[in-house]
Design a protein around this nucleic acid. Sequence first.
RNA 1: UCCCCGAUAGCUCAAUGGUAGAGCGAGCGGCUGUUAACCGCUAGGUUCUAGGUUCGAGUCCUAGUCGGGGAGCCA
Length: 468
Amino acid sequence: MDRTPIKKALDADRIGQTVTVAGWVRTARHSKGGFSFLSLNDGSCFALLQIVADRTLANYEREILHLSAGCSIVATGELVASEGKGQAVEMQAKEIRVLGEVDAETYPVQAKRHTFEFLRTQAHLRTRTNTFGAVARVRNRICAAIHEFFQRRGFLYIHTPIITSSDCEGAGEQFGVSTLDPAAPPRDENGQVDFSQDFFGRRTYLTVSGQLAVEPYCCSLGDVYTFGPTFRAENSNTPRHLAEFWMVEPELAFADLNDDADLAEEFLKYVFSTVLNDGEEDLNFFNEHIDKTILETLRHIHESEFVRLTYTEAMDVLETAERDWDYPPKWGADLQTEHERYLTEETFQKPVIVTDYPASIKPFYMYVNEPDERGRRTVRAMDVLVPKIGEIIGGSQREHRLEVLESRMDECGLNKDDYWWYLDLRRHGSIPHAGFGLGLERCVQFCTGMANIRDVIPYPRTPRNAEF
RNA sequence: UCCCCGAUAGCUCAAUGGUAGAGCGAGCGGCUGUUAACCGCUAGGUUCUAGGUUCGAGUCCUAGUCGGGGAGCCA
């Protein structure tokens, strides 16, 4: 169909042109005076195109008068300067074809305010609302910006596998992948399920991170990144967690933790400024109706330098804070949510990169620092914390010294045979390298102000919820 | 998984242990270059499920299911 996106139809310099638009009626206001106002959305932008239809249309009485929210139409007409107040441009319809009618009695998305909880039960139709249309466009722009950022810097986009066989990547519970009959799986002599007869001839899982699989590419091709779906079978019931989410994981070659932190900061600033520049219409909506601080926050971050401090320094800040903690800060324990919020929202009021965490609370693959003067051992890990969301990025310099890595794996109780290829990278031409993971949905949350992560992914998967 | 809160009309919510209501939406009518239009009328209910207390339960008790907030796990 030769149609003009509404985004283009609304350009003032198109006035006088005759165009065809297609979309879904958001609201229909009928006057018995013999004309109707149809507000049309086609997803190309936030704004609606008002179509004026009058009884000179052949199907006015029969069809147009019965149009209501949700109906799909194709309209052809002249773009004219609007006589009304709410819009500069509108269409004077010459022909309107009704593609799909709506049973107004049962159409769930009414022209009124709905709660996000209700709209989650209508995930197939919630995209027809202002909020979810805007979320989809911002999410798209963020994804494009992510690729732009890395591509312009020469990073290779690597597709790491969704199905993996390493069962302890150190990042949470995994979903099993199997084609065995769950009601009657084959069993070995000990009565255990015999996965050697499974599709892959071994136990397999959905990936919890592409990091281990992307490191070999980093250690041969240089700077790389992976960007894909990630799965965690944790029983997490929070507005910040999903069982299926998207993660961006760059891996920098010949790099240390400082390079990693530099990259993370530049990366976030690029993504945020892109959304600010290109998503103005949608962001204005979020700023007005969802979170009144979102524009100010994004601009502020773009202009300011991220705070960088070590875990030990952060502990000093927290320990001297005049404040009653639910969990008093203590060196060796992980930062609690209340601690992160204090640092980002009160002490510094901007993103904070915390580095060099105690080795005991971080995974085996992180580079081990020399013990400090008090003999405490840390690893070159970093978390990028932002106001409200908390941890948006987690990363580290990787341990590239074979002996240190092996002893760390022993400490963590891992079977080194399972990681033979990962260890091989440290045997043959090992290099210092570093990387991080950004949770896409948390980034979308941060840019839109949407409070619940289930509302920034099309079809959220959470415990007990895989409808749609 | 733990703590707290909630579930009543299509949606958002009211309703001292005593006949279940409103707004919005929907249908019909009126009015209008309208714009979350406006005005009038009408229809619409197994009060989440299963037990229990009571003469009587939307309301009180127990268990469960689902949802929300907080915490943990993390991105």
